[in-house]
């Protein structure tokens, strides 16, 4: 039972822990935002794709003892290939189709992933117990889980790599040009189809990395996929659909509020609070915190 009379350190501990988890959520949401910003498709299988990465991380750890923090890069690569292939084969023909049609396609993918994982791994929760799982850092009166510090740090690294890619890499710039002006990109001869596939791959790579990291701090079941998708939506809509910084900020905000809501109200209230934030944002600032107003 929580309550307002706990010592301040506890609130701070929970807030820091929520903030660090929020960074990982932010990385996941970053992928959704990048995909939407460029391809203009809402990836409704986003959380499900992340659970794939989480299970892969768990399998790699259980079978070969490979640390999820190191596996972040190979798993990002695996998901990149998956995303690239999905965009090339399935989603590209849907670019010009109505919104709900795209939505159904990805919903189908989501259903297949959730239940495919259910067949493969069963319904029970699984997680990674790394050697440092119970370590913690003491910072004066504050105690922070080592895992969460590593996880938050890894998420920042991955996000920074993505920002750098879009800023400095020629392909990254081409993708941004394509996002700003689709027809313009066509005119100057960019291969839009390939850029879309690259972008979807990058978005998927984000969830690959995020999933790998998250396997350290949260246990996973197949049915968590839709919950993560919803979480990614909440974050991205709060931060501003299509805005990269918005996704990260939204992740931190949601991570923080969920952690504090769990402490102050009850564990099951945390998603209620984030949905309340979502509803308020949708109604009063539909462009999100960092987003430009959509026409």
């Amino acid at each position: 039972m929580g309550g307002p009379f706990l010592p301040l350190e506890i609130y701070l501990n929970v807030a820091i822990s929520g903030l660090l988890t929020g960074l990982v959520y932010g990385l996941m949401a970053l992928g959704l935002s990048v995909i939407f910003g460029v391809v203009r498709v809402v990836n409704f299988a986003h959380g499900e794709m992340m659970t794939i990465a989480m299970y892969l991380a768990i399998v790699l750890f259980a079978s070969y003892g490979l640390d999820p923090l190191l596996m972040m890069i190979p798993l990002a690569a695996v998901l990149f290939v998956l995303g690239y292939a999905m965009q090339m084969t399935m989603i590209n023909p849907f670019i010009a189709r109505p919104e709900h049609s795209q939505f159904m396609l990805l919903l189908a993918v989501a259903i297949i992933i959730v239940n495919g994982l259910l067949i493969a791994f069963g319904p029970d929760a699984q997680s990674v117990q790394a050697s440092y799982s119970f370590d913690s850092f003491a910072l004066g009166p504050l105690i922070v889980d080592a895992t969460k510090v590593y996880a938050g740090g890894a998420a920042i690294l991955a996000a920074a790599a993505l920002f750098a890619f879009f800023r400095y890499a020629p392909i990254g710039r081409a993708i941004r040009a394509c996002a700003d002006n689709h027809t313009g990109a066509l005119v100057i001869g960019l291969n839009v189809k390939r850029l879309y596939a690259l972008t979807f791959g990058l978005g998927a790579a984000c969830v690959g990395a995020a999933g790998s990291i998250l396997s350290l701090i949260e246990s996973v079941t197949p049915s968590l996929g839709p919950a993560y998708t919803l979480l990614a939506f909440v974050i991205v809509i709060t931060g501003g659909l299509g805005s990269m910084t918005g996704a990260l900020l939204g992740g931190i905000l949601i991570g923080l509020t969920e952690a504090l809501a769990a402490l102050l109200i009850s564990a099951s209230a945390k998603s209620m609070v984030s949905f309340a934030i979502l509803v308020l944002v949708l109604l009063f600032r539909p462009q999100g915190i960092m987003g430009k107003r959509l026409s």
Binding site: M104, L105, G116, I119
Partner: peptide
């Protein structure tokens, strides 16, 4: 008879229908 088989089938049906018969 694994637990998710029926829903994988739902998903595949949906996938095929939205792709072939929009």
């Amino acid at each position: 008879d694994p637990p998710g088989a029926k829903r994988v089938f739902y998903g595949l049906c949906l996938l095929v229908v939205v792709m072939i018969l929009p």
